[in-house]
């Protein structure tokens, strides 16, 4: 299990990296944390002709706080974990980060690498969708923004063009009286989710839901935005019937395929279980936040 040959270039600037990418297109891959790319190269499932190492590009790393929280693509999981202000403003991350592999992986892996890899069983794509993140994509020719819900096109496929890099992710701050919760079931801690669910519930002053965002991982070809299925919650305080109705709608809305660890039926069942548990917790957290 050794990588096929390639040409390695340590990019000296973002422009340098983008110029190289424009030149080599799909033949080139950006190397960030490498925690998905290098295993794929070791298995020879990925055989880029050119590897553009962007680890030296400090301008791509870091978290800018504000009404919109902007996270540079090269920000590593361990940096997210250690930034308490970030975890306060993006509480789904506080729930989800411990589920992402193990400390050794979190010391290298980056948010941009994870989202660009677009593994549907991974946690962060679901978080990005639930949080209505905006992805900032850059190429030598310009820059554009793409909503997370449009960014993920399929399993391991995104809206990134061959010459583009995901450079930053923008997370809108949660509205007041919001509570968030991410939960997942995996066989072992750190494994990809058999089913995972991120939700944000926003309440009015009376504790009734005014808005719900909900996305799942591990149960489809992309992170699944099930916010519409969760809409029965709107107008309701935390109560069994609306939550059960939402969970039933979510179960119906997804099309899990099953995998070596779980039957499709079990995944669907779990989605319902997680929906009930996570929505309740989110309600509670929203109430506490008020």
């Amino acid at each position: 299990m050794k990588p096929a040959p390639f040409k390695y270039v340590a990019a000296s600037s973002l422009d340098h990296a983008l110029t190289l990418k424009a030149e080599h297109g799909d033949e080139a891959r950006f190397l960030a944390g490498g925690q998905s790319l290098i295993p794929a190269m070791n298995f020879r499932l990925a055989r880029p002709a050119v590897v553009i190492d962007i680890n030296g590009l400090d301008e791509l790393a870091g978290i800018a706080h504000g009404p919109t929280i902007r996270v540079g693509a090269l920000t590593r999981y361990c940096a997210l974990e250690r930034d308490s202000e970030f975890l306060d403003s993006c509480p789904l991350f506080a729930d989800a980060l411990p589920h992402i592999a193990h400390p050794q992986i979190r010391n290298r892996g980056t948010i941009g690498g994870n989202l660009s890899h677009a593994d549907p069983a991974s946690e962060l794509p679901a978080l990005a969708v639930a949080m209505e993140a905006q992805m900032r994509l850059k190429s030598a020719g310009g820059e554009r923004r793409l909503a997370a819900s449009e960014f993920f096109e399929g399993s391991l496929t995104t809206g990134l063009a061959a010459d583009e890099m995901l450079v930053e992710v923008e997370f809108p701050a949660l509205p007041p009286r919001s509570g968030a919760c991410f939960m997942e079931v995996s066989r072992r801690r750190g494994d990809f989710a058999i089913a995972g669910l991120a939700t944000i519930v926003t309440l009015d002053a009376e504790g009734r839901c005014t808005k719900v965002r909900l996305a799942l991982c591990g149960v489809g070809e992309t992170p699944v935005d099930a916010s519409e299925a969760a809409a029965p919650l709107v107008g309701h305080a935390c109560a069994d019937r609306p939550i059960e109705a939402a969970a039933a709608a979510i179960r119906a809305a997804i099309e899990p395929a099953g995998n070596v660890h779980a039957s499709a039926d079990y995944q669907r069942h779990l989605a319902g279980v997680l929906a009930q548990r996570a929505i309740r917790t989110a309600y509670q957290r929203a109430a506490n936040a008020a």
Partner: peptide, 11 residues
Amino acid sequence: LSPSRIFDLIK
């Protein structure tokens, strides 16, 4: 056994 298998058997 596994959680999924137990679920499937009960179902």
